[in-house]
Design a protein around this nucleic acid. Structure first.
Lengths: 350, 350
DNA sequence: CGGGGATCGGAGAGCGCTTTCCCTGTGTGC
DNA sequence: GCACACAGGGAAAGCGCTCTCCGATCCCCG
């Protein structure tokens, strides 16, 4: 059953070759392959036969050039001004966050045969080129992961008419589709749990205050604490990495040795906090209760296992993919967003 | 500074448009943009002027169609027969392994402006389509992550003349470039450390015996143990997930309650093992010493922090990217492979 | 001052495909 | 038996780009 490289020299077979073998025109072969218009059943068969004989595979590039459809969506990671040797990106990819997003997107895209292309942009120039490429049909649309607090990319995308969906709301109002988590509600859940547990002196380890998700977790936490009579709460900021959580916990402990509860804005930092607490000889949860955020794999791996706010990131990414696909199919689709509600997962740390 | 959509209707500006504005031919504009051949400095400037005025961005698709170069490499994750609703892939993406590979690849690709396209194949048909697309210039080459023990993909790729580099050696001999870790050496390191520590009854939690990396870790471990007079060692197999490690540890403990040292084939499973050990009331490392493998983020997050075999996956992925790029530039390049040497990282678990 | 080589711009073919337009052949209704 | 619709296949025009020719210009040297 050796597949013949059929009569063409070194080249791969083209439509033309198939047409010659089948004794029809290029147009007919195209019609058969794309199943468009009725083609005489007999010819139909002859054509498929020729396709098999030549081992023909349509050239996606050529096809895309004329159809203006690529069957690809871009996953754009938008970073602020980072240089190429910035190690941050490495950390970002290793973070469960990235993997969960890819997994969620893929679960939807795979079924529709759509491909995912990864794009990192960090500079003004990079953004411009990206938008240009996307408008030129490099991909049919983009899922955007925006890291910086204020990012011109979302607006550039919508202005350029590029179908796009963000995961996490844009830093400033932009008429773009997005999928987000009710971060403030999540923080409320955490705060109320700590309070209900009887904690009296509660602090927080937050992410960078400027990024939307982080901001919402802080404000949700503050609001809830205030509502329960804690007008002021100590907050130390980290940057979502484990080490930064460790550092933040140490500084929190130094300033407020009597802390008995901490809400940590993500699980990775919570793991760091756990380390710092152990180092300081505080038992968790008996002396200090910890509530994390994300319910990532780190939460269950931690000791003690983290009580945490569940962030259904895979589902959100999948929804983003669906939204994007719908938008691509219907350019008139109105801008819409989906907000997911977090839930609290009780484990041992609080 | 409003960018003009310049004189063309709804279309994006093309080379033709730029040429018209600049008052030169398409060819000249192309030459200027690609910096090929000397073009009169004056014209040169006029052309760039026109480019700015029209907001022209080259169409990659069209360019690729003729140059047969896409500036994209594919990251192919080759799975065995998995259905679309298989949750395994989700786990795979969330695993630090995937992220580390992407990060390593990106660190190199980013600098050269090469893009990464993610491709998952799980079926015979999918593989065939993938190879066809790659031969057609869908991407310039592929980095392959092969999960199944025996996978026809590597051979299909080389037969098809597609530049490809594997991360991890192929299950069966195939003349393909690859980057791998000396897994057996890593296992030796672990075994010797456990032995040197004075452990007498040492077991192992392995991955699936058929996959090459896993196989090599088992054989390296067995060989070393045998050399030191332990002709037989208990081994329980997991599948590289945390839960499977937990289960394996429990079964190991049930059969050999007197175990005082365990080599676990990856950190995720080691974390699971730690959980099972705590549940069984065994202290680590005083009663049972644990050595992991990978030195992933889980190792340092674990309590106690894992002594583990460092797997420089990012470096390896970066090397794979460089190898692939070199191969793409020079199709005559001979097949070559790079084997990295693991090192032992001492922490608290052993 | 003329010839020859080097330099540089333009015309046009073509990458592999889709799709419009047209033409032919067949079936239908009157 | 004729007009008409309609189905189905082919010719050819592009999609936006690169690159090979080819011809024009310029300069240098004998």
């Amino acid at each position: 059953m050796q597949r013949e490289r059929a009569s063409v020299g070194d080249r791969l077979p083209t439509l033309e070759d198939v047409a010659r073998v089948a004794g029809v025109s290029r147009a007919t072969v195209s019609r058969v392959i794309n199943g468009v218009r009725n083609v005489d059943p007999q010819l139909h068969e002859v054509v498929w036969e020729a396709v098999g004989q030549t081992g023909y595979v349509p050239n996606r590039l050529a096809r895309s050039l004329v159809t203006r459809r690529t069957g690809t969506v871009a996953l754009v990671v938008s970073d602020s001004e980072s240089h190429d040797d910035d190690p941050f990106m490495g950390r970002f990819f290793a973070d469960p966050y990235f993997g969960r997003v890819v997994g969620g997107l893929m679960s939807v895209l795979r079924q529709t045969g759509v491909q995912l292309a990864l794009q990192i942009v960090g500079t003004e120039d990079g953004r411009r080129r990206l938008v240009g490429d996307l408008r030129n049909g490099q991909a049919d649309g983009a899922v955007v992961l925006s890291l910086p607090a204020v990012d011109p990319l979302p607006r550039m995308l919508t202005d350029g008419g590029v179908p796009a969906v963000m995961i996490g709301r844009p830093g400033e109002p932009v008429p773009i589709n997005y999928v987000d988590l009710a971060n403030d509600t999540g923080a409320t859940l955490a705060a109320e749990h700590l309070l209900a547990r009887g904690c009296q002196r509660i602090g927080m380890i937050s992410g960078p205050a400027e990024v939307p998700a982080s901001h919402d977790r802080i404000s949700g936490f503050r609001r809830t604490m205030a509502k329960h009579g804690h007008g002021w709460v100590p907050i130390a900021a980290g940057n979502f990495t484990q080490e930064s959580g460790e550092v933040a916990m140490r500084s929190l402990l130094a300033d407020h040795p009597d802390l008995d509860g901490v809400f940590v804005a993500n699980d990775l930092m919570a793991v760091g906090a756990l380390l710092a607490l152990r180092e300081a000889g505080r038992a968790v949860p008996s002396q200090v209760a910890i509530v994390g955020f994300d319910d990532s794999s780190a939460a269950i791996a931690a000791a003690p296992a983290l009580t945490t706010v569940r962030h259904p990131l895979e589902d959100m990414a999948a929804e983003a993919a669906r939204l994007l696909l719908a938008r691509i199919d219907d350019p008139e689709m109105r801008v819409s967003s989906v907000i997911y509600e977090p839930t609290l997962v009780l484990r041992q740390s609080a």
